[in-house]
């Protein structure tokens, strides 16, 4: 499989009021192949969404890419013209947002909105666009698509709207789909349906997916590869199975410990085990030093860690890399 998206040493900074650029993302690298799913995992404020927006070239005004390259099929999108970028959005890369309740224009029918994307990217006429919109709604498993195509967003439930969003995102036949926490705002039952839908659609269309989430259950189910971000730095990456089953970085372990495990049995257990948490908070922007970003919260930190800089992301096996000074001890 060829590499579709390659992010190389991407750094993003926020320009403060004094002109100082505060790093938001540091030296992030990853690659996504066609038909595969890459998950970006981490707490809020770790730079997951910023990564997505940087790939879309839709970073908010004060944010700038300070270094690195983003290659889509070998084309550097950071240097693409605004016009080229417009045709890439929707067609090369598209994005699903977190909040389906607010991500659709309330004044137009869903058919209009999907149809518009179709008309930009494949130049079809109005009638043809409506037919294709119905087909897309059917593909995302919306019942009675012939009627729903004329519905306004407020007439649909959250799960339905997220399906519409997915239909809209797929309308331009993108090679890469960025899903920014696509299920966070939805019911648990609907979450599972949306993930199944994404997996099915990916199988048919061979679209690469960058899945941004903090739902590790979803990662285990959907993702092929994982990058765990902490405070704007990638601290563990690799094959999804390997990272989920043998997490090496203390942060990844902490995240996995935070997932509640349901124990089934005839009686309640003798002793209830507390759900783990990671004490402390992600260091705020501007408070990130040159040493290991996770140091202050790490239970495994040693004197060695305190005396050194942020460790490099180094492989421990063929398909698994960790950024930790004690990786060999912890992996054992």
């Amino acid at each position: 499989m060829s590499t579709l998206l390659k992010v190389e040493n991407l750094s993003v900074g926020m320009r403060g009021s004094t002109g100082v650029v505060v790093p938001v993302l540091e030296n992030l690298s990853f690659a996504v192949e066609a038909g595969r799913t890459m998950a970006l995992v981490g707490e809020s404020g770790c730079g997951k969404s910023m990564t997505a927006l940087a790939i879309m070239r839709l970073l908010p005004e004060d944010f700038v890419v300070t270094s690195g390259r983003i290659l889509l099929e070998g084309e550097d999108i950071l240097s693409a013209s605004p016009k080229r970028m417009r045709s890439l959005r929707g067609n090369g890369i598209s994005m699903i947002f977190q909040e389906p309740m607010t991500a659709l224009n309330p004044l137009f029918t869903v058919g209009d909105q999907i149809g518009e994307v179709l008309r930009w990217h494949s130049g079809v006429g109005l009638a043809e666009a409506e037919q294709q919109a119905i087909a897309l709604l059917r593909a995302v498993q919306i019942p009675a698509p012939e009627q729903r195509v004329k519905a306004y967003p407020h007439q649909l439930s959250g799960g339905m709207r997220q399906r519409v969003m997915i239909a809209m995102a797929l309308a331009g036949r993108p090679k890469l789909l960025i899903a920014d926490e696509p299920t966070t705002a939805l019911d648990v039952t609907v979450q599972a349906q949306i993930f199944d839908l994404l997996a099915d659609l990916q199988k048919e269309t061979k679209t690469a997916i960058v899945l941004i989430t903090h739902d590790l259950g979803a990662v285990a189910e959907l993702a092929d590869d994982i990058s765990v971000l902490y405070a704007g730095r990638c601290i563990e990456s690799g094959d999804a199975d390997s990272v989920v089953s043998h997490p090496c970085h203390p942060y990844t372990r902490g995240l996995l410990d935070c997932v509640p495990q349901l124990k089934l049995g005839p009686r309640p257990p003798q002793a209830w085990s507390d759900l783990a948490e990671i004490a402390g908070m992600v260091p705020p922007l501007g408070a990130r030093g040159p040493d290991c970003a996770f140091l202050a919260r790490c239970r495994e930190a040693s004197e060695l860690c305190r005396s050194r800089l942020q460790p490099a992301l180094e492989p421990i096996t063929d398909d698994h890399a960790v950024s930790c000074w004690r990786k060999s001890e912890l992996a054992a």
């Binding site: 879309m56 839709l58 959005r89 607010t102 991500a103 309330p106 994307v117 990217h121 969003m165 309308a171």
Partner: peptide, 9 residues
């Protein structure tokens, strides 16, 4: 929805 529209091209 404005961001989404922009993201769709």
């Amino acid at each position: 929805f404005v961001k989404a529209s922009r993201a769709a091209g």
